[in-house]
């Protein structure tokens, strides 16, 4: 990791940490919490897609596994929440391997459809065999550790964003390391990677696992925050939303995933007036981004900032 990356990290999370001091409304904080949860999934997809070049339209599947497994374990089997979350992550990792191993030969469209199919199968399973079927189930305990339960909106906000910070720190470190470089190399050429001794299939499986772990963690945190879940939160639409966050923010940059998650989560709240139009608005944003701002928000803005700074330096 470079010093600048770390500075950006510190500044951003101090800013997020200060937000609750100025925002009184629980409603606004709740949107902040959902932004954080979505950011976790988006960071995972960003590493998978932006770095490693593997498409996934099935992140909702892992998100759903995370939510359901940890909730079921804590509600019906009396697992401590933290153990439920970890178990869910193990299940998701296994699911990722089951998906990734046969999908290794697939690229592009085929991979997109295969992951989409995986996500939809999980959705069907949740609908058919999940507690409560399509209407879901509730009374899921809040996150608690050592007898302390995180309940208020403010606490939850800090809790979620601390986890986002940890995950982000880990992810920046990973993507700026040797591993990150190899992932980008795989994006450009599988053949060349193999020729210099990189075990491409194994690497692909590992990235799939990583992105699944993030999504699963986010799913668990979601379920223990809202305390009531139903399959509709884990449909194809969620996978597409996450995809949109990564693309709108900028898929080659982890901050893009975070920014995209915040924008796409906050946006529908701003567009409350046109509530029936959300799908249309999403669709247009995604299409226009793809066509005219292919790099995404964060790279475009950071280039602008660099230009301004460069201009100032030139003047002195």
């Amino acid at each position: 990791m470079k010093k600048e990356d770390f500075m950006v990290f510190i500044v951003f999370f101090i800013f997020v940490g200060l937000l609750p001091l100025f925002i009184e409304s629980n409603y606004a904080l709740t949107i902040g919490i959902f932004s954080g949860i979505n950011a976790l999934v988006a960071i995972g997809l960003c590493i998978l897609m932006g770095y490693a070049g593997q498409v996934s339209l099935g992140q909702a599947g892992f998100y759903g596994i995370g939510a359901y497994v940890s909730s079921i374990l804590s509600v019906y089997y009396g697992f401590p929440v933290i153990l439920g979350i970890l178990s869910a992550m193990i299940v998701s990792a296994i699911a990722a391997v089951v998906l990734a191993v046969p999908a290794l030969r697939l690229k592009g469209h085929y991979l997109a459809v295969a992951t989409l199919g995986f996500g939809e199968i999980i959705y069907v399973i949740l609908n058919e065999w999940g507690p409560g079927g399509p209407s879901g189930f509730g009374d899921i305990p809040h996150f608690n550790i050592a007898g302390y339960s995180i309940q208020t909106t403010k606490e939850s906000f800090y809790f979620i964003w601390i986890i986002v910070a940890i995950v982000m720190l880990y992810s920046i470190n990973l993507t700026k390391s040797n591993t990150g470089r190899i992932l980008r190399a795989m994006h450009d050429s599988d053949t060349a990677c193999e020729a210099i001794g990189i075990n491409v299939p194994l690497l692909k499986i590992k990235v799939f696992i990583l992105s699944a772990l993030y999504a699963s963690l986010a799913g668990s945190l979601y379920s223990h925050y809202v305390t009531f879940i139903s399959p509709s939160s884990f449909s194809l639409f969620y996978s597409i939303l996450i995809l949109m966050m990564v693309i709108v923010g900028g898929s080659k940059n982890l901050w893009g995933a975070v920014a995209g998650a915040i924008v796409i989560t906050v946006l529908p709240e701003l567009l409350r007036k046109f509530q029936e139009l959300d799908i249309l608005v999403y669709g247009f944003i995604l299409t226009l981004t793809l066509m005219f701002f292919r790099k995404g928000l964060v790279p475009i803005i950071s280039e602008k900032i660099k230009n301004v700074r460069g201009y100032k330096f030139a003047k002195h």
Partner: peptide, 12 residues
């Protein structure tokens, strides 16, 4: 280097 461990090496 190890894939998952690379994220834990917290030096610049």
């Amino acid at each position: 280097t190890s894939f998952f461990m690379d994220g834990f090496k917290f030096s610049f």
